[in-house]
Write a protein that binds this DNA or RNA. Structure first.
Length: 400
RNA sequence: GGAGGGAUGGCCGAGUGGCUAAUGGCAGCAGACUGUAAAUCUGCCGCGCGAAAGCGCUACGGGGGUUCGAAUCCUCCUCCCUCCA
């Protein structure tokens, strides 16, 4: 296996426990395991609560991949049983419990997409219903007896809700225990998760230890911010980059990220060589590297990791043509016109604007051009001309 | 079983009878600028008619009501939360 120092450099990259002391401790623990020079059992658990993944979901997947590339044994655990409860970790309110049918439906697409970021042939896929479904009430009670109420209430998410007078249901306490039990059932050496899950991972250590197992090394990663550069990337917030979105869309979304988040994106959302990543970040900080060039590299990398090199080249070329050189893309959608319709009608009919009111505003803002000339709202749509709305919407008018 | 609090536009969150298509923030869109679709600045940001002023329609969990007029008051219903027992 690769030298321990080399492994450690890569594996600890981006890792954050929210506490420098913990970092030292866990880094040492990981070093000890790596020195045993054997494939470690590394597990990542994912609850199939959503049917399609965002770039944010790929952060822990990439970490698992890194372990895999060093020859460690990767376990992808589908939390089909825990999903029924709902992880309270990242929420300040109760999470809805899913039905078994919903879980099943999400699960298939989930792994299919996750597999893009793993080496699927070398990944062991498990479900936690395999062991959790068989626990007897007595087993569960024994598990709960290892934890105290004070311990639970010290946890930030619960504490805040408790202090705010919000409801905390008993089953929410159980979530951490279930995830902890997974670690024990898998007899894992390492568990990967988001920083907000540290509590759950620590619960796992405790359960393993009580059962006479060596507690695993937690590897927690920060939450990836969304395209707004501020809040957590999520579908519902609309600030996401979906891994099944078209290459051009992904590329564009990356290019619209605020410059400040480039470092964290390079660390968390790419598989680029860690030494290179470090030098990029350093270069950006010192102003020796051009943010735009680096952002293009980031965009290219992310698209390539989702769709392949070829798609990344295409997306980049598209961006350079349309945005940087402001050319009309040759694949601009066409729209048949007789020459009697008004531009306004055509823009709405072609879907370049959601409503007439909105289209009217676009005209008022001088955002509509025909063959490069700013067009007025009353103009008629003539076949053979090219309409551009804003920076990224085009239409080629053709004979019907 | 009892008492009380809440449900507002994509999200967060003001508003407690007309001045409210509804403060503000975020997200989004446009223009300017630029090193990029970054940052910054400015404007827009329910739908329809109208060149425009303007007019109309729909909207504050759901139904019904009071009123010249309701997101705001009353009533019933649904869902959520808290406290006491």
């Amino acid at each position: 296996m690769a030298p321990v120092d080399e492994q450690l450099f890569v594996l600890m990259s981006g890792v954050d426990y929210g506490d420098p002391h913990l970092y030292t401790v866990f880094e040492r623990e990981l070093r000890e395991r790596l020195e045993e020079d054997r494939p470690l059992r590394v597990y990542l658990g994912v609850d199939p609560t959503a049917s399609s993944l965002t770039l944010g979901h790929t952060v822990p997947l990439r970490k698992l991949r890194q372990f895999q590339e060093f020859g460690h044994h990767a376990i992808f655990l589908i939390g089909d049983y825990t999903a029924l409860i709902g992880d309270p970790s990242d929420k300040n309110k109760l999470r809805p419990m899913l039905t078994p049918e919903e879980v099943k439906r999400n699960e298939a697409t989930y792994f299919e997409q996750a597999a893009k970021f793993l080496d699927p042939g070398r990944t062991e896929v498990r479900h936690n219903s395999e062991w959790l479904a068989d626990l007897k009430l007595l087993d569960v009670i024994r598990l709960t007896s290892k934890f105290t109420v004070a311990e639970m209430l010290r946890r930030e998410t619960f504490r805040k809700r408790f202090e705010a007078g919000d409801a905390i249901f008993l089953h929410e306490f159980l979530y951490a225990l279930m995830q902890g039990y997974d670690a024990y059932a898998l007899a894992c050496d390492v568990q990967i998760g988001g920083t907000e899950q540290l509590f759950n991972l620590m619960a796992g250590r405790k359960i393993q230890e009580d059962a006479g197992q060596r507690p695993h090394v937690p590897i927690t990663l920060p939450i990836l911010v969304g395209t707004d550069g501020k809040t957590k990337m999520s579908k519902s917030a609309g600030n996401y980059i979906g891994i099944d979105e078209p290459p051009e869309v992904q590329y564009g979304k990356v290019m619209s990220l605020p410059d400040e988040v480039l470092p964290e994106y390079f660390v968390l959302a790419t598989n680029l060589d860690r030494a290179l990543v470090a030098s990029i970040i350093e270069g950006l900080r010192k102003g020796e590297r051009n943010p735009m060039e680096e952002k293009k590299r980031l965009a290219r990398t992310i698209v390539a990791e989702c769709w392949g090199e070829e798609a990344a080249r295409r997306a980049e070329a598209y961006f350079e043509r349309t945005v940087q050189r402001k050319e009309v893309p040759e694949d601009a959608p066409t729209f048949p016109v007789r020459g009697t319709e008004t531009l306004l009608e055509v823009i709405v009919a072609a879907g370049l604007a959601p409503s007439k009111r909105e289209a009217k505003r676009l005209f008022q803002q001088r955002a509509v051009t025909v063959d490069g000339q700013v067009a007025e709202e009353g103009a008629t749509a003539k076949p053979g001309s090219v309409v551009q709305v804003g920076k990224r919407r085009w239409l080629r008018l053709v004979e019907p």
